[in-house]
Amino acid sequence: MIGIAITGSGSAVPDSRLTNQDLSNVVETSDEWIRTRTGIRERCLASPTDSLGALATAAAHQALEQSGVAAIDLDLIVLATSTADDLFGSAAVVQANLGATHAAVFDLTAACSGFIFAMVTAAQFIQTGTYRRVLVIGADVLSRWVDWDDRGTCVLFGDGAGAVVMQAHDSNQFLGFELCSNGSLNSCLNLAYAAEAYPLHPKATVSKGRYSPVTMNGKEVYRFAVNRVPEVIEKALFRANVPLEQVDWFVLHQANQRILDAVADRLKIPPEKMLSNLASYGNTSAASIPLVIHEAVQAGKIQPGQTLATAGFGAGLSWGSAIFRWGLG
């Protein structure tokens, strides 16, 4: 089997930052209320002129530069997003922006689990020998789709993008994974289509509409995450044949600091091994894991050869974990 190395990372966020104090002037809430329940202090929000494609492209440029891979040499681009600029997808726009004319591209939608699902998808193409160089991007602009009068959801989300480059390599650094879904819990977290009947003909009525704001059963999502995330990490570690104590860093989807703390407690891992930038960015959905990775690489925390246990969880409901070593080792 062909090996895989993860050789570069990048990230991008909008310029506009909204603090909890700022948000308290928009909806009935407070800095103390948000911080104690979520760990979030501020978030970046896209302006009307910002685009998901531009954020994804900026993150991609950084990842390509760090990895030493030219855009023209990419074989595949996988964009994990639930908030594409175009319902037909935004991956092709990113390809055009980069000049990656030899790459096949597609969007992948798995909400906050999207980056993990995209990495695993990319790994299959590389390990079968189909492609050698794949750009994986996680990007979301959920500020477009929240109800700014609902303090239970609007305080949670921020916008951003993150990316990594995965390449064929002599030794395999992508060690194992586990992916899961449970559609019976789909109603716990939705960004649903809102249909309006449109009589087209006496024999045909179609629907026209829009998407409703994000709705979430916070208690159920919390219960799901603290139970399923430790379990899926342990399963992925088993498949990777990596003992828990040999993991250098745990990088989870940044949904809520209480979830991160609960997972660390259940796995009995030192809190300092659980990377978090939630306070500065909020929940950026598919972007959150690569955002954390890139910041930790830039800060010198994540070093080549170190082992990362990553886990995403969210709408679907879906959840998954991927275990890999950073860099060429």
Rank of each mutant, 00 (worst) to 15 (best):
V292L: 01
H61Y: 08
M274D: 15
D248E: 09
E220G: 02
W145P: 03
L317S: 01
N217A: 14
A100R: 01
R144F: 04
Q124E: 13
A12I: 08
V78G: 09
T49M: 14
V164A: 03
I4H: 05
L191G: 15
P304N: 09
T205L: 02
W319Y: 10
W249S: 11
A315I: 00
R258M: 04
A299N: 07
M216I: 02
F177W: 11
L185F: 09
L64Q: 09
D248W: 07
Q173T: 11
L74I: 05
L267A: 07
S276E: 08
G329W: 10
R133S: 15
D248K: 02
D107G: 06
S11V: 10
N227Y: 12
T130L: 07
F115K: 13
R228V: 08
V247W: 11
D73A: 15
I323T: 04
S90P: 11
I40A: 01
N97K: 06
G218K: 01
V136W: 07
P199Y: 00
D75I: 10
H201Y: 10
T7F: 04
V226L: 10
L45P: 00
L87K: 14
L142S: 08
A59D: 13
R266A: 15
E32M: 03
E295M: 14
N241W: 09
A311F: 02
A236F: 12
V13M: 05
L267F: 05
V251M: 04
T284G: 03
A80H: 05
I116M: 14
T38S: 03
R43G: 05
E245H: 08
S187A: 14
Q127G: 06
F238D: 10
N182E: 08
H169T: 12
L55P: 00
C154R: 01
A103E: 07
G160A: 14
E220R: 06
L237F: 14
A287I: 04
L191W: 01
I269H: 13
A192D: 13
A322W: 02
N186E: 14
I293S: 02
D75Y: 05
E272N: 06
E42F: 01
L108R: 10
L175F: 07
L308C: 13
C188M: 14
I72K: 07
G282T: 12
T109G: 10
I293G: 00
R223Y: 12
G3K: 00
T307H: 03
S67N: 07
Y193L: 09
S9W: 07
L64H: 00
G10Q: 04
Q306E: 15
F157V: 12
L185Y: 07
H102L: 11
S16T: 07
Q257F: 01
M274T: 01
Y198I: 15
